[in-house]
Design a protein around this nucleic acid. Structure first.
Ligand code: FES
Ligand code: FES
Lengths: 145, 145
DNA sequence: TATTAATCGGACAAAATTGTCCTTTATTGG
DNA sequence: CCAATAAAGGACAATTTTGTCCGATTAATA
């Protein structure tokens, strides 16, 4: 509801790649889709976008697959993934659907909406892939059910 | 991004009806669509849903149209409109797209996501149509641009 | 009572999003 | 060099959301 399906898959995939990269494993889209319970071909498309945006790193050929540099696990924040897939409408859009959010000619919900959106943005900007992967590692959180 | 287009139109329409009902005017879907800049026929469909959910009141025939009782302007909160149109997926959905949000087997984003969603819910539950219409009345806010 | 103006409701159409399939390209290891 | 493997990329299909059209229903008024 907040993010598109593509974006949800993208985040789940990135977190799974992070988890496996921590173990030094490179993973295929088949494995990723299996582990995050997502449609394989669609997931492949999304991973292409993440690759182009330098969020994950891909290697072709046998022994190839997806991985994330240790440094990027800290540097890549959720807002980068959301922006790569859903664009910035989450930040510039108006809650009531006016052309764009504009404090000079605000919709009736503007003030309250901006409050919440700011919280959301702050959260996305401060949450790294590494942070999300650690909960998984110790079995506190899940990428599928 | 947060609400569906249908929901955005629904809220804008309800706020406009509120504004006009304050003046004792009953309004047609043609006028509403004009004033909130939305597709007429689609807006009509959405108003049917709001009518069925007793959020707005409709009158058929000449001199007919939509109106909202003074009491309902205070009693109808945004969450009722969102629920009528988008259902409750905004409340029960998982931020990362798992079947449903479940604290017992949470996704990696659960805690942070729930925080924000709680703020959103609180905001929607405490914002009335009357409140939104008053800003409009004094020219501080707008339903179209 | 006939006309007219309005919502209701159902079927249909267009557009966007989600999802599939297949061919090409790169890379590895024998 | 060759065969096998994996991502890249493009075309296509299904589904959902958004949007349109038109006849049926209701009510006011002349
Ligand atoms: S103008 Fe609507 S949210 Fe800012
Ligand atoms: S389980 Fe994902 S948001 Fe609660």
């Amino acid at each position: 509801m907040m993010f598109s399906k593509a974006c949800e898959y993208g985040i789940r995939a990135a977190v799974y790649i992070t988890l496996q990269s921590l173990e030094g494993r490179r993973v295929s889209v088949t494995e990723i889709a299996e582990e995050i319970d997502s449609p394989v071909a669609f997931t492949a498309k999304i991973l292409q976008q993440l690759t182009k945006n330098n969020i994950v790193h891909s290697v072709k050929g046998p022994t190839g697959g997806f991985e994330i540099d240790r440094k990027d696990m800290d540097d890549v924040k959720l807002n980068m993934i959301v922006k790569a897939i859903d664009g910035d409408k989450i930040y510039v859009g108006c809650g009531l659907g006016l052309k764009e959010c504009n404090a000079n000619k605000p919709c009736p919900l503007h003030d309250k909406f901006v409050d919440i959106r700011t919280n959301l943005r702050t959260m996305l900007q401060s949450t790294s892939l590494y942070e999300l992967a650690t909960g998984l590692e110790v079995g506190l959180t899940y990428l599928k059910r």
